[in-house]
């Protein structure tokens, strides 16, 4: 199979107006991916599916990823690394964004940008030619109001439920999806719980066993110990 660089070059030759970037994967797996611009994504996807040398007829996996704005000022790695359990502000109301410090991270996949977007990642394989994966990524403009991406469900039906799931949990709106509803949460639900700044409802009224974060959150509900002291 062609390398991602070759695919990129062919795509650029075929779609001169499109923007196709190679996103390198610094990890051991070294599965590099192609970042497409939203405007041409549908055409490029069709091309990838039908091109005789690629024939990526099988879209295996569609993933949403949240990349909140990167705090460039964070320098001390100790605080930047997310702790074992994600800390959230216990005073924050459900649905309000957590303080930015909770989002500290040393993530490095898109090393050269500052984040603040949502991403959809598609893993494509070819069942006919038995090769793959070719990984394509789409990115939204930001995380609040420019969150529309073209749906690839018309190209690969396999993306149907998975795009609905991403719409539900991340809030990416897939334009052109035939049936874009919440998949997992109920329809009245308003948050996008897989985002990093989502604050879950505080309903750990009582937690008798120490259980990390749950324990901490439950403490707020414990009765005061003052009466017991005397």
């Amino acid at each position: 199979m062609e390398t991602p660089e070759q695919i990129r070059d062919r795509l650029l030759a075929r779609f001169p107006a499109a923007k196709v970037e190679l996103v390198t994967n610094p990890g051991t797996a070294a599965e590099h991916s192609l970042l497409l611009d939203a405007a041409h994504a549908r055409d490029i996807a069709l091309f990838l599916r039908d091109d005789p040398a690629l024939r990526l007829d099988y879209c295996s996996n569609v993933t949403g990823v949240d990349w909140p704005e990167k705090k460039t000022a964070v320098s001390a790695p100790k605080t930047a690394v997310p702790t074992l359990v994600e800390r959230v502000d216990p005073n924050a109301l459900p649905g309000t964004p957590a303080p930015a410090s909770a989002l500290g991270s040393t993530r490095s996949t898109p090393a050269n940008d500052s984040g603040n977007y949502l991403e959809a990642v598609y893993h494509l394989y070819s069942m006919a030619l038995k090769h793959g994966p070719v990984i394509i990524r789409l990115r939204t403009g930001n995380r609040t109001d420019r969150v529309t991406l073209p749906s690839l469900t018309p190209v690969w039906r396999a993306a149907d439920f998975q795009e609905r799931e991403i719409f539900d949990l991340y809030g990416i709106v897939f334009a052109g999806h035939p049936d874009l509803r919440r998949l997992l949460m109920w329809d009245e639900f308003q948050d996008h719980p897989m985002r990093r700044d989502y604050v879950a409802p505080d309903d750990f009224e009582w937690e008798p066993t120490p259980h990390g974060d749950v324990h901490e959150r439950a403490k707020g509900h414990y009765p005061t110990t003052e009466g017991l002291k005397g």
Binding site: G27, T63, P82, L84, E86
Partner: peptide, 17 residues
Amino acid sequence: LGFYLISDGSPNPWRYR
């Protein structure tokens, strides 16, 4: 059955799918 993991070098995965 697939697992898609994004690591940011920390002890927890950044994305686990």
